[in-house]
Amino acid sequence: MSWNTYYQRKHAIDAVLDSARRDPDRALDTIPSPFADAGELLAALQHKWLQQLGGRLEVALTDAERAPHGDRVEAVTSAWRRAAAANPALRAVLDHHAEHPALRAGATAENRLLATSAGLAEEFEPEHDATRVGQAFQQLLRASPPPAERRGRTGVLRKLLAPSR
């Protein structure tokens, strides 16, 4: 990718996110150049999200390792929430288009990243299992109240992860 293409893509993404701040449901009504279609644009937006999340995860996990009673689940929860709070338009567009086929691979990668980073799954586990754990964890962190109001999250997480009968 040339610098020219990089900056064209960056400006297009910025324009889409500006539009999303006004109306996330209509942010992709017009696909800006140089993107060929909504799938390509959504994949770029998801890449941006994973970069934002990944940076925050790295810092949070490093801090948790240094803390006397560091909690990886808390660190990952905090990192995800900080990334979402810092990127509300990006999160809104991705959430609105969550079922788009272009987002499947990235969503799977994000769920595995969350599960392994929180210590809820190991990297060598089957992809399906780690993805399922990450999905459950993400549902929980999206639905649970802020940290000061949270109690018994581990029990809720275990219920979400219980095998289907």
Rank of each mutant, 00 (worst) to 15 (best):
M1S: 15
S2V: 00
Y6S: 12
R9C: 14
K10N: 07
D14F: 03
L17K: 11
D18Q: 15
R22S: 11
R22F: 03
D23I: 02
P24F: 05
D25K: 07
R26M: 04
A27Q: 08
P32V: 07
P32D: 10
P34F: 04
E40N: 02
H47Y: 01
K48M: 11
W49D: 00
G54C: 13
G54P: 04
G55E: 07
R56C: 01
L57E: 00
E58Q: 15
A60L: 06
L61P: 09
A64P: 05
A64D: 03
A67D: 12
E74R: 13
E74W: 02
T77N: 08
S78I: 04
S78W: 09
S78T: 15
A79I: 04
R81Y: 06
A83K: 07
A84I: 07
A85D: 08
A85M: 08
A86E: 14
N87C: 14
N87E: 11
N87S: 14
R91E: 04
V93A: 00
D95T: 15
H96L: 06
H96C: 06
H97V: 07
P101E: 04
A102P: 04
G106F: 01
A107P: 00
E110S: 03
A115E: 06
S117I: 03
A118K: 11
G119Q: 05
G119T: 09
G119N: 13
L120Y: 03
L120P: 09
A121I: 10
F124T: 13
F124S: 13
E125N: 13
P126M: 02
H128R: 05
D129S: 15
R132S: 14
R132F: 04
G134K: 07
G134E: 01
A136E: 07
F137H: 00
Q138F: 00
Q139V: 05
L140F: 10
A148L: 12
R151K: 13
R153I: 10
R153W: 05
L157E: 08
R158G: 05
L160S: 01
P163R: 11
S164L: 08
